[in-house]
Simulated scan of single mutants.
Amino acid sequence: MSTSAATLSPSTPLDIGALLRRWRDQRRLSQMELALEADVSTRHLSFVETGRSKPSREMVVKLAEHLDVPLRERNQLLLAAGYAPAYPESSLEDSELSQVREAVRQLLVAHEPFPAVAVDRRWELVDGNAGVALITAGAAAHLLEPPVNALRLSLHPEGMAPRIANLAEWRTHVLGRLRREVTATQDPQLKALLAELSEYPAGDDSATVAHLPRHGEIVVPLRLRTDDAGELTFMSTITTFGTPLDITVSELSIEAFFPADAHTAQVLRATLS
Rank of each mutant, 00 (worst) to 15 (best):
E169L: 14
S41D: 07
D120V: 01
V69C: 00
L151E: 01
L143K: 04
A81F: 03
T237H: 09
P244I: 10
L97C: 06
E181R: 13
V148E: 00
A84H: 02
S198L: 12
D205W: 07
Y83A: 02
L153W: 00
E196Y: 00
A130K: 07
T136R: 05
S4A: 14
G230W: 03
Y87M: 11
H173V: 04
A195Y: 08
K54V: 11
E58I: 00
V219K: 14
L245Q: 13
D227Y: 11
V182N: 09
W23N: 00
A141W: 03
N75E: 03
E89H: 12
A118K: 03
W123F: 11
T271M: 13
R121A: 08
V182K: 08
R74E: 04
N75Q: 02
K62I: 03
A256G: 00
L175T: 01
F241G: 11
A202T: 13
R180H: 14
R52H: 13
R24M: 05
V61E: 09
D39I: 11
V220K: 04
A18R: 05
A229H: 15
S206R: 05
E169S: 15
R105D: 12
T208S: 13
R122G: 02
L175I: 09
E93D: 15
S56Q: 00
G159I: 10
S90C: 06
S273D: 15
A110L: 11
A165S: 12
V220E: 06
A5D: 10
A35L: 11
A229V: 01
A133G: 08
P188Q: 09
S206H: 00
T50C: 12
G216L: 10
L92R: 01
T237R: 07
S30F: 02
E255D: 02
E93Q: 15
L63T: 01
V117F: 05
R179S: 15
R177K: 12
E102R: 15
R24C: 07
L194K: 09
V220T: 15
M1H: 10
D94I: 07
A86N: 06
T243N: 13
L212T: 14
Q186K: 11
S4I: 07
D246V: 15
M32R: 15
T271I: 10
K191H: 12
P147L: 01
L144K: 14
S273Q: 15
H215S: 14
R225Q: 12
M59Q: 05
V100F: 01
H211S: 15
A192L: 10
G138F: 09
M160W: 04
T233W: 05
L232T: 10
V182C: 14
T237D: 12
V209Y: 07
S273H: 15
V182M: 08
L78T: 03
D15K: 09
A64P: 02
Y83E: 05
V209D: 15
E33N: 10
T136V: 15
A256K: 00
A210E: 06
V219M: 14
E145C: 07
R101Y: 04
L92S: 04
H215V: 13
E217P: 07
L97W: 00
G216Q: 13
L45G: 06
L268F: 04
Q189P: 05
V117E: 02
T12H: 11
